[in-house]
Design a protein around this nucleic acid. Sequence first.
DNA 1: CAGTTGAGTAACGTGGCTTAACTAACTACA
DNA 2: TGTAGTTAGTTAAGCCACGTTACTCAACTG
Lengths: 241, 241
Amino acid sequence: MTAAQSEVPRRERARTATIEEIKATALNLMRETGTTNARFTDIARVMGMTPPALYRYFADHDELLTALIIDAYDDLGRTVAESRDSVPDNDLGGRWLAAAEAYRQWARREPQQFALIFGLPVPGYVAPQEGPTTEAASRAMSQLAALFAEAHHTGMLQHALIRDVEPAFTRCAEGEDKFSDIPTENFQAMMHAWASLHGFTCLEAFNHLDWVEPEARDALFRAQVRLAAKAAGLPAPARVR
Amino acid sequence: MTAAQSEVPRRERARTATIEEIKATALNLMRETGTTNARFTDIARVMGMTPPALYRYFADHDELLTALIIDAYDDLGRTVAESRDSVPDNDLGGRWLAAAEAYRQWARREPQQFALIFGLPVPGYVAPQEGPTTEAASRAMSQLAALFAEAHHTGMLQHALIRDVEPAFTRCAEGEDKFSDIPTENFQAMMHAWASLHGFTCLEAFNHLDWVEPEARDALFRAQVRLAAKAAGLPAPARVR
DNA sequence: CAGTTGAGTAACGTGGCTTAACTAACTACA
DNA sequence: TGTAGTTAGTTAAGCCACGTTACTCAACTG
């Protein structure tokens, strides 16, 4: 391990550390202000630096934002995957429940990052076209798709509740290589499940469910997710929490 | 009608007209920039006025935003209600479908206004506590609730797919006076339906479904809404579109 | 004619983005 | 070990833009 450190030149390590610190600081500022804006000046001040120094690491405000967006996707995807994989392979319903809960809790914990990736673009930000953000997004989403692929391959995926697959959607789904191993019917069901999960998550993360008591909100969420599972043909979770 | 105009003093009419123009201009600027920010300076410039003049109408940036948020809720609620009521009373499934489609299309048409009410708060904006925005929100939402109440009273509301109502949610739902005439089971189902609708709408409005062809997206949406209806115990639409 | 309202001008203050020029420290190599 | 090159960082400065207030003028109302 000590040997591995010297693999990477000292300077380069310091540099990446600084980059990480900048991003972390920007996120902290967003958390404080409750927005998706982080001023260069403030970041520098908090870090005990001067604003121009940041330009050594990010050519542009947009470049920082792009990095943050990619990180957010990766973090969300990783969190969902980890939570999903903490449930045994044979309990597919439980794995879906865990993944969904992770999605939800991540958004609650980090509403700014959630807004960063799933909300309106930040004022003044223009996304790099065909860019790495899109890739990061599909990487994160494939964590959900993996669950359905898994279910399909082990034969545990039942028929979806909506079975009259729309022809237009069939054509479209077949165009996506990475999902080609899931039957269209189930792929469509997955999209429904995702939308359903996403909707609850948005409402809660942006404070539109404050009038529902916390325990009731938990219950409502579980019901929403179970409903989505049932509709998608996923088996019920092994243990009821 | 001509007599009615003189009911309201000339000055007051001019004043409200200006207020409307300010709000409309702000919205146009938001549409142009694709954000939820509208600078006072820009509004004034577009209107052929000077910035300070706006302070005659809005004491504050926040005051303008508050007005815009309330307008957005009202507009959304009105749009949904109109679309819903354009379908015959006896076709409850069709009414739900129409309402949902209106919700979706409104968000597509006005992503900025949609973000204004359902996204992160605008940078620097602090909502007036216990304020009129909350009232406007529940007014808009009651347009959906009305549909379920209607269905319940005419006896056309079947059992929801999820029937083991969570006890915590029961207590909470009973606390809401305005929904007290809908059985808890169905109220919960309504929340599920709303979340599902909202999720799809958010994803589409914020460009996360661009990879799905337009016709396929329409199909996907209709399936999502039909699924939600089935789960909530609403009858199927009379005519299949 | 007196009072009220709308609007403009000028000005203040602030604050942030960004570039340019310079300094200090570190790295590597002879 | 000394020296040349590179990198991180600072200071200074320019620039622009926005929000907001105070003051003044014009127009309308009654």
